[in-house]
Simulated scan of single mutants.
Amino acid sequence: MTDRIRLGMVGGGNDAFIGAVHRIASRIDDQYELVAGALSSTPEKSRESGAALGLTRVYDDFKQMAIREARRKDGIEAVSIVTPNHVHYAAAREFLKRGIHVICDKPLTSTLADAKKLVKAAEASDALFVLTHNYTGYPMVRQARAMVAAGEIGAVRVVQVEYPQDWLTIEQDFKQAEWRTDPARSGAGGSTGDIGTHAYNLACFISGLEASELAADLDAFVPGRRVDDNAHVMLRFKGGAKGMLWSSQVAPGNENALRIRIYGETGGLEWAQEDPNYLWHSPFGEPKRLITRNGAGAGDAAARVSRIPPGHPEGYLEGFATIYSEAAQAIRAHRKGEAAPADVVYPTVSDGLKGVQFVDACVRSSQRNATWVTL
């Protein structure tokens, strides 16, 4: 492809897991070329990381990068922000005010105040803002969303979603654990911010519902931990549906066990991230049906974000790639002064605000002995 979008990256230097994931995802559909970066918290580390990636335009910090890239005729058109949460707002603001599209990792910010300011910055900018809730890019998640919207399970009554992991069952001191359990960098939420926001976003994305109230019981089971590592949350959705959400990073035997079940008046749906190519559909009073990615029963919503024939695994990296490719379509439409095609779907800054509001409400509720609070 000769028309690749010129991409920059903030964060994601040497040994940064999620930065490598974003770089791979941006290349899968050959939509982007990484040309610049401010890749680490120090100029020395940034230059080392840039050299390892073969970049010739490496900056000491994100502000320097935003200023200089905006002045170049061949400057970046979009930037990936893959830093710890507390950096998201300041970095995104610098690029947005210069008209550079932002693709930002979740959660949106570490505080609700910053999330609200970032929404205003995005609204004031001509640039697009894309949030990488990558699970919304999975084909069978798109299939489930389309089936709910088409009324195939009737009006939604119950949403059950969970995301248990076990990697923080004991105190850990390596980089990924260290910043995620530091409220100054992660925000007030631990498991709620890191994986609970994924579960909450997925519940709303598939069901089409918006939560109005929640009651949350948060725990930090590991002694001395300053953010939650386990959360039980009850949800009330506008329109009367009810939900339950469990996020945990202290559940031995679980790796990335994101799972959602949605029940309506006439049937139910079930999807699990660790078995992502399958969606179970249970029409009331009939045998349970298995819908496979690109197989019989799968529709256009799944097909347009599928890349390979049925039966071959397609998952995490491809889900990320779908978000990048949806963003690429929106960016190319933006170049022409047009709206993106109606079937292009990606999480926005508004979805990001809802995620931070979810974390804030969970913390407020738990501090009040799990009382109901409004979002």
Rank of each mutant, 00 (worst) to 15 (best):
R4H: 06
R6D: 10
M9G: 09
G11S: 13
G12S: 09
A16C: 14
A16W: 06
A16M: 06
I18Q: 08
I18N: 01
G19M: 09
S40E: 08
S40Y: 00
S46L: 01
R47C: 05
E48S: 03
S49I: 09
A51S: 13
G54N: 08
L55Q: 09
R57S: 06
D60P: 02
D61P: 00
F62I: 03
M65I: 01
M65Y: 01
A66Y: 00
R71A: 10
R72Y: 03
N85E: 07
H86F: 07
H86T: 14
A91T: 08
A91S: 02
L96S: 02
G99Q: 05
V102N: 03
I103G: 04
P107S: 11
S110M: 03
A115W: 01
K116Y: 13
A121W: 07
L128Y: 09
F129N: 01
V141Y: 03
R145T: 13
A146D: 08
M147H: 10
M147A: 09
E152T: 05
E152N: 04
I153K: 15
V158T: 05
Q160M: 15
Y163D: 01
P164M: 12
Q165N: 12
D173E: 15
F174P: 07
R180F: 13
A184Q: 10
S186N: 12
A199S: 03
Y200W: 15
C204M: 13
F205W: 14
F205L: 02
S212G: 11
E213A: 08
L218Y: 07
R226N: 02
D229E: 11
H232Q: 10
R236F: 05
F237L: 10
G239L: 10
A241T: 05
K242I: 14
L245P: 03
W246I: 13
Q249W: 15
V250H: 01
N256T: 15
I260L: 11
I262A: 04
L269G: 01
Q273T: 13
P283C: 12
F284Q: 14
E286K: 04
E286T: 04
P287L: 13
T292G: 13
T292Y: 15
T292L: 14
N294V: 11
G299H: 02
D300H: 12
V305L: 12
R307M: 10
P313R: 00
L317C: 09
L317R: 04
G319N: 04
F320A: 04
I323P: 00
A327T: 06
R332H: 12
H334P: 05
K336L: 05
G337D: 13
A339C: 08
A340F: 04
A340I: 03
D343M: 12
V344K: 15
Y346I: 02
V349H: 05
D351W: 07
G355C: 03
G355W: 02
V356P: 08
Q357I: 09
Q357H: 10
F358K: 09
D360L: 10
A361V: 01
C362K: 05
T371F: 15
T374F: 08
